[in-house]
Amino acid sequence: MQSAAIPYRNSRLNGVEVLLVTSRKRSRWVLPKGKVKQGMPAHRSAAREAFEEAGVTGTISALFIGTYHHLKTQDDGQAKMVAVQAFPMLVRQENKSWPEMHQRQRCWMSINTAIGAVRNSELRAVLMKFAQELPNVA
């Protein structure tokens, strides 16, 4: 199981924006995600990934908004389908440097632009659900 953060903020100009990062291998727009660290709750692991991959910190919900699947290429070249739980995270701080800053790009997008930017249909559905539940999340 993996976990992902849905980093978001309220922008005066664009309303709610979501932060996406590029994947390392294919340069696709994705959420910051990774393996759930042993002994760490999934939502805390997602917050850690948001810092490592996107350089953001904030308040993350312990309740996941949805699950999607993605194809993970292992170090040995084998491909494996993995489930990812996505947790909303209100961003409080955006750092100028972070661990993976030279490996990924990050971009704030309106929620509708983010939905259109991701290629994974299940991730798109999770973002649509997040958009529908925003009044309850924000």
Rank of each mutant, 00 (worst) to 15 (best):
Q105K: 10
F51W: 14
R119A: 13
Q2L: 09
A117I: 00
K129R: 15
K129A: 15
V137M: 08
A79F: 13
P88L: 06
H43E: 11
K96N: 13
I6N: 02
K33I: 04
E133C: 12
W108A: 07
R9H: 02
R106M: 05
M128N: 07
V126T: 04
V30R: 07
P41W: 06
G58N: 06
M128A: 14
S97I: 14
G66L: 06
W98H: 07
V30P: 00
L127D: 00
N120Y: 01
I65P: 02
V56D: 00
V137N: 00
E94L: 10
A50C: 02
V30T: 08
A117D: 01
K80R: 14
A62N: 11
R119L: 12
G34V: 03
K72I: 07
V56R: 02
A83N: 11
M81F: 11
T113D: 14
R44C: 08
L31I: 02
T73M: 11
K35T: 12
T57P: 01
Q93D: 14
E94Y: 06
S11Y: 09
I60P: 00
A125L: 09
D75F: 05
T73K: 14
A47I: 00
M81H: 10
N120D: 10
Q93G: 07
V16Q: 08
I6L: 05
V56T: 02
S61L: 12
N136L: 14
K96G: 15
K80A: 10
Q103A: 13
G77Y: 07
R48Q: 09
A46W: 02
R26Q: 13
Q105V: 02
N120E: 08
A54N: 04
A125F: 05
R92H: 06
R104I: 07
Q74V: 06
L63C: 09
A125W: 05
M40N: 00
M128R: 12
K25G: 15
V30E: 06
H102E: 14
V84T: 11
T113E: 15
K72C: 10
P41C: 09
F87S: 06
A83H: 11
S23E: 04
